[in-house]
Design a protein around this nucleic acid. Structure first.
Ligand SMILES: [Mn+2]
Ligand SMILES: [Mn+2]
Ligand SMILES: [Zn+2]
Ligand SMILES: [Zn+2]
Lengths: 138, 138
DNA sequence: TTTTAAATATAATAATATTGCATTTAAAAT
DNA sequence: ATTTTAAATGCAATATTATTATATTTAAAA
């Protein structure tokens, strides 16, 4: 199952329409090697079928909501979800130089359980990103 | 030792000048309850001694570099460092509603050691933020 | 007090994000 | 197939956030 096919399946299940702009953004993200911003994506869309950047912002909002993309905070961009790692903690290793990133699952994520009780935050979600140099940039 | 005094000490040790704008930003951050952006900080500076927002950007850059503030990625703002927790992993619990955040140390942060070897990222640093609702917002 | 590199202010520009509204369209209903 | 309609998009305007270049000021050392 490809990223695009699985994403379309999820969008349909969540009652979102499969539109040209959404397909186009999926195709860009499917090929991307690094996190992309809305404007980055706009630049990667084929010139013959341009898509307004406002639409891209709205598409990304939906994609993130249904869980087919992740925001990489240390690079201010989005990457496709690695669906094989869907069950875990959605942690990322991000190259501080070029931005290449890989999702990985922590066998035993103690983060939420180690949250001191006195902070009284009722945990809802968490992000973990490790920055470093990838093979190419090292 | 207050946040301001300890920060000034660190800035001097790193050979940065102690200027009016830097003191003013320290004072704002010392009082802040939530992460503040450069423009947020500008608004909190006393009207009689306004500071250009460009300067605030540059001040924040220095402050982050010397380790007296942290960027909260889930809220796009900065908070003062809790120096008592300097040795740990600089993890944060952040209220998704109001932004109130608290630094905390994971007794045993396995994040970097659990990074799969095949990712070949040579780890340099990492961020961990837990989102949830604080006492007031819950 | 003088000197000087560092820091700041100002102005301009760039980059990123949001809003309201008219128009188009995917998908369901007929 | 055709019609229907809520959802999605395009467009224009605006808002917000961030960066750059350069002249001026200033903290701290000499
Ligand atoms: Mn994931
Ligand atoms: Mn810290
Ligand atoms: Zn790299
Ligand atoms: Zn709160």
């Amino acid at each position: 199952m490809t990223f695009i096919d699985e994403s379309i399946q999820i969008l349909k299940r969540e009652s979102y329409k499969i539109t040209g702009p959404r397909r186009a953004v999926l195709e860009v993200l499917a090929e991307a090697e690094i996190p992309l911003s809305a404007y980055d994506i706009e630049e990667h869309i084929p010139e013959n079928i341009p898509i307004n950047v406002v639409t891209i912002y709205r598409v990304l909002e939906v994609f993130e909501k249904v869980g087919i993309i992740h925001k990489i905070h240390t690079k201010e961009g989005y990457v496709r979800c690695d669906f094989e790692k869907q069950k875990g903690c959605h942690s990322f290793a991000v190259c501080s130089e070029c931005g290449r990133s890989k999702e990985f699952v922590q066998k035993e994520c103690k983060l939420e359980t180690q949250l001191p009780q006195k902070l009284v935050y009722k945990s809802l979600s968490h992000i973990s990103e490790i920055s470093g140099l990838c093979k190419q940039c090292a």
